[in-house]
Amino acid sequence: MLGKTAGGLFWMFRYLERSENTARLVEAGARMSLTRSVSGADEWSSILTTAGASLSYAERHDSVEPQKVIDFLLRDKDNPSSVRSIVESARNNARLVRTALTREVWEATNDCYLSLREELSKPIRDRDLPHVLGLIRQQSAYVRGALHGTMMRNDIFDFSRLGTFLERADNTARILDVKYYVLLPSNFNVGSSLDNVQWETILRSVSAERAYQWLHSGDATPVGIADFLILDRRMPRSLAFCYAKICDNLGYLEADYGVRHTSHDLADAVRSQMKDRSIDSIFDIGLHEFLIGLIRDTNALGQQIERDYRFNG
């Protein structure tokens, strides 16, 4: 496979994952605005931070208002990380790697682009927001379904999955880090529950409020949530889960090509930080430090994969 193609696949699936994550963040924020009486400005600010869009948003808007944030994150053409821009980037990458994709995956991606371009071309009215968010989720589910149902399990698949899980690990780590202070024991009086707004936003941002409820019978403790999102191997957006997948896919490439690269060692090292570890020991070294380190490592791993597999020469 061409290095360029591997890179195109990797980024195509990073972008698709990112668009879904952004939609999920907006969904969590919108839900907060509707159901909680608190002023939403803080929540929307942290959503912008999580999406890595605070600075670019501030350049264009004076105040944080739900309508403006939603518009900025979903459909602003000048925001390179809006869903509209990202989906276009994903589709451009798909065109670049067209020969590596099955017809089904290409068509699902093209459909995703065409229908979201249409839907996001005009301002979104409040009452249409659930529909638009649903569409984003549905369209990326189609691409994922086509990928799983029709693609060979070879290096093409491995690079696609690496893009997905690297992006997801980064996203989950960011969601936690933006909120790390509310999870700190020092801010948390023994016996009292976490501020409902805070934990609900976190769990909704990863579409896991229901799963958490089932596992923990509604007992939202900082340790419980951090454990769930960092270490729980059953949770498909947890850091441990993402890194298990990253290591699996790098492992398939190692077996397939017969070559072990630096990126394999990097990934294994990050994974071992979470293996057989208790959440308490993470709090001991500092949650923020742990998350910052993980974001940095994930970024470095992405760059290393890029070099090892010659994405750019």
Binding site: M1, L2, G3, K4, T5, A6, R98, T99, D155, F159, Y257, V259, Y309, R310, G313
Partner: peptide
């Protein structure tokens, strides 16, 4: 390219290597 099962390359994927024109793949 897809129908033939051939790689689709651009100029920047190619270079001279041991007297041949070679494409940059994930394995070299």
């Amino acid at each position: 390219a897809d129908q033939m099962g051939a790689e689709l390359v651009e100029g920047h994927d190619l270079r001279l290597e041991d007297g041949r024109i070679a494409m940059r793949t994930t394995r070299g």
